[in-house]
Each structure stands twice: as C-alpha cells, then as structure tokens.
Design a protein around this nucleic acid. Structure first.
Lengths: 292, 292
DNA sequence: TGTATAATGAAATAAAAATTTCATAAATTT
DNA sequence: AAATTTATGAAATTTTTATTTCATTATACA
C-alpha cells in the first residue's frame, strides 16, 4: 500500500472531528496550494485555530506540522516531475508505467491534432444548425454510443429536443416524419458502423440537415453529410480513443449553450427543482441517514 | 512585464558574483524543488553560506528570502492551476474561436493533471481486480453514463462478463446474488448521482470488490470503495468534461486487454465472423447496394 | 438532565528560520 | 604589490513559525 498523504487523509476523514474534517476537506480540495501554507495560513483558510492544525498533523501520525507539510510537498514535486518527464517524452520508461502514461500522451496528441485541424466554419455551422433545429436526432452505435449518450444528455439539457437513435431497427418509427428543419447528427469512427452509415444516408434522402463527427474525410459518413467535423482517435491498441472527439463535443455543447445562455439558465433552474424532488443527485448530510 | 522570478534571475546572472552565480544556477536547474527550500537548505545545496542566500534575494530586489520564495512558489502554483485560474477568473471569452480552442486546452490540462496525480498502484489493483472478476458490473448514470457505455463495450469484448447498471431500480434483480468474486465499478462526478452512490454502498455491503472512478477523494463514492481512481473533469462551463476520465478508462481497458492478449485475439476473431455475418460494420463496395 | 469526555481556541512558550553583524578572505584598482 | 573595495561565512540577533498549556465550549454517555 503506497498510501500517499492525501489517501491517508481521505481514509481517516470519516472518523475525524468537526474541525479536523474542515482541515482535511480544505487540504483535499487545494492540493496544489496547501503544501506551501504555514500553520497560521492553514488555520485561517480552514477557519480553525493554529493549535487544531498542529493536532491534525499529529493525529495523522506525523511528528508535527512540518512533517505533514514535507509529505505534501513531496507529492507536488512528484506530480511535476511526472508531467515534465512526459512532456519531454522520448525518454524510455521502465516497466508497466510506460504504457499507462503513453495512453494519456496519445490522447493529448489526439486533442492537439484535432484542434489544429478543426474547421472553424464547419464548427460554427454545426452550432447554428443545432440551434435552429426543430429536433436533433443522434445516431451512434457500438463504442461511439458513449459519445452519443454524452452529446444527447447535454444537448437535451440545453434544447429539450434531442433524441438518441441506437440502431437502424428503431429508425423508421422515429424518423419517418423527418423534414428539412430537423438535424441528424451521426457519430462513427474507423470500423464504421453500417447502422450509422445507413441512418445518415436515409436522413439525407429525407432532406434533413446532416452533421457527422468522424475520423477523416474518407469516412463513409462524409458523402451523406452537410457538415463534417473530424477528430483524431488513433491509439496503437485494439480500442478507439475518444478523448479528442469528446473534447470536440464539449466545445460544441458549450457553444450551443452559450448562445442559449438565458434559456439554459432558466431550464437548469427548472431541472434543479425536479432533480431535487426526485433525489437524483447525492446530497451531503443524507449520507449516513440509512446506515446503522 | 511578464518577467517571472526565473527570467529575472537568468537576466542578471552575468553580472553576479561567484557565489551568487552558484545560487542562481542551482535555482534555475531545480525550479520544482527549490521553492520549498529554507535558507539553510538552499545554502547547503548551493554550497554557500546562509548569509549569502539572503543577500542574493535582496540583490534581486526582494525584501528578503521569504519574498523570493513566495514568488517561486507562485510560479509552481501557476503551472498547476491553469484550470483553477479559469474557474476563478471566469474571464469572458472575446473572440469565439479562442473559446473553442480553450476547451481543448482545458481538456489537455485535465489529462495532464490526471496523469500527474494517477495512483499507479491503485491502477494496477484495478486492472487485477477486473481480470480476476467472475463478473463486472458497471454503475454509471446521467452524463457519466457515456463513460459507462464505453467501459462496458470494451470490457465486454475482452472479458465477456460485463454488465451495465443504469439505475438503482434495476439493481436488485441484477445484484442480489453478488459475492466477493464480483467487481462493481462505479463512475460518478461532482453532482454525484445518488443512484450510483446507493449502488456502490449496496455492492460494498454485499461483499463485492468495489472500484470507483470519480473526481476527488471527497467524493461520496470513496467511502464505499476498495480501489479509488481519480480523474480531473473541470471546465469553466455548465458541463462536465470527461476527456480525462475517458483517457483513464482507455488506459484501464488497454491494460486489461494486454494481460488477456491471447484470449482477446481469439475472441476478436470470433467476433469478426459474427460482425461480418450480421453486417455490423460498414464495408467498402457494399455502400450503395441497398440504395436508390 | 446532569456528568464525563473530548475538542477547541487564545495566549504563552519553545523551536526554527531569516537576518544582521563583524571579522576575514577574495577580488579589484592603482 | 599595497591599498581599497567587495564578497563571504560563522555566529549573534531578530523575526517568524510551530507547539504546548490551560481555560472554555461542545459532544457523548448514562
């Protein structure tokens, strides 16, 4: 168990006193700044006395505050060296860790590539098309379904008119009344799902506005689309990496949301009420209520 | 005016005395550790006296060593808190394009942060737990459902024993026979879904191995989990950004897959056949076959 | 509800860190 | 090379920071 400072704090959190919890919480929420704090500053920020801060450190098993601080500082230093090492990259790593970090590194590259190749006018067209749509249908299958779920969830919060199509089978019922005021958004990446390809072809034929998110312009989705967005998804393994496409979807949803800022605020408030009534989101304080 | 401490040190280096050069050089070569040093440590490391270290700080224009230290610490914090700064400052984006790129940039930062903070042993434990599981259940709701869908899709290709639980309602039927050889994988981020929290609490009580992917150690999922993985998801908008968590899931699936390399190959071959028969994936040449 | 126990903060004390002093040793100038 | 200036380190001093004490408040227990 290579428990670092923060893990051990988090672990002991439940058994801590009120003030100690305040300190623990503050530390865990500010891991980047806290290692620099003196006892006095820590006490002030966490709204407890200096004595309590010292007792906190001792209770965690350290000889005093300086020792706790030392451990937190090491954590920051490690963090930086890890990132730096990776930035420099090219260095050969030993063992398993290499592979883990490589995947993150690949995703960063994918996002950079996506950013670099982004067609801003296509992006803006997509935002406008979505904003003006009567209804937005999203077609995404297989692994890309995850992207579809994400896009649908947030677009629906903003627009309240978004639906997810999971396969061609359920397509006809949903889409037979499709017209030019609707938008169909297709998402598919290499080993393109034939279901999504067919859906887009159908949508196009019906005269709907079609947007696709895919990996490149050779994708079979392209011929049937009015607006093409591309995102990099290459990693040298058997899976697709969707970090970059997801980031692009983030940007898309954010910009649609920005245009609809007032509507969204209003809608979010309504949603808040409903969520609260249904207990959709976890609330502090209710935590131990159903335990012995 | 963007002169930070290190720039001004580098600038004045040529005019410095012997001992001061020693200090300056040491600082510039150890920007990550030096901000934590006391005068004494600094003196020892740079092989000069404490008095000289103090004089060095004064000569640079600071009131004393603590002020120099303060500036160096700010530098470290800035490195780490691009994301936080954005949240604080809530600067209004000017040009639209900048806003688009900022989102990608934030996601890159999120991935870097996630990478830096990754607990490798927790990661390896998660991989092993999944590999040894009789069955893997994934609990993910709301926006995090997208991550759940992705994880389930790929884990199922590798292991053939993965199921997605979408809400507590369908929980009892799936989980009543849960035992210690099963793994339950919970995914939830700020505004934690109470459904997922409850599911994890139940799983833990039943004695299953629990893994969670969440944003930090204060998450309500943590108390009910054996293995905790954290990923950054902060962007200064109304949505959660899942690029970093997704990247972490990529890494996880890849590593599980690597361990099962032979099984996976074999399984993928079988899947290929099935996919081909069902026409799941798009094939060149067949594209217009069922059109016009 | 009263009692025992634990937790807390203000202030005193101890410890550590930074700064200054001063004698000495390098440079620099003539 | 001698005189002057400048830089340096050991030790003393000052300042800052951490810890302990003790009276008070909050919490748990019976």
């Amino acid at each position: 168990m290579n428990h670092n400072v923060y893990h051990s704090i988090a672990e002991k959190l439940p058994t801590m006193s009120k003030s100690h919890k305040k300190i623990a919480k503050f530390i865990l929420e500010n891991t980047n700044t806290v290692p620099f704090f003196t006892v006095a500053k820590m006490a002030k920020k966490a709204e407890v006395s200096e004595a309590t801060v010292v007792r906190f450190a001792v209770q965690l098993g350290y000889s005093g505050y300086p020792e706790l601080q030392q451990h937190m500082q090491n954590s920051v230093q490690q963090q930086l060296t890890t990132v730096e090492r990776l930035q420099m990259s090219s260095q050969v790593y030993e063992g398993k860790e290499q592979g883990i970090y490589d995947i993150f590194q690949d995703d960063i590259e994918n996002i950079k590539t996506t950013m670099g190749k982004l067609d801003i006018s296509a992006f803006n067209n997509a935002v406008n098309a979505i904003l003006n749509a009567k209804k937005v249908y999203i077609s995404a299958n297989r692994s890309a379904a995850s992207l579809g779920v994400f896009l649908q969830y947030y677009l629906n919060i903003v627009l309240e008119n978004t639906e997810l199509i999971r396969s061609v089978e359920e397509l006809p019922e949903q889409l037979y009344k499709l017209d030019s005021r609707d938008v169909v958004f297709g998402i598919s990446f290499a080993r393109y799902s034939s279901s999504t390809v067919k859906t887009m072809a159908f949508a196009k034929k019906q005269g709907a506005k079609t947007i696709v998110l895919t990996d490149n312009l050779l994708s079979p989705l392209v011929p049937n689309s009015d607006i093409v967005l591309t995102a990099a998804s290459q990693v040298p393994t058997f899976i697709d990496s969707f970090a970059a496409p997801l980031s692009l979807i983030n940007a898309l949803v954010t910009h649609v949301g920005k245009e609809r800022i007032n509507d969204v605020d209003c809608h979010l408030e309504k949603m808040e009420e409903i969520w609260e009534q249904l207990g959709i989101f976890y609330q502090k304080g209710h935590e131990e209520s159903n335990e012995s």
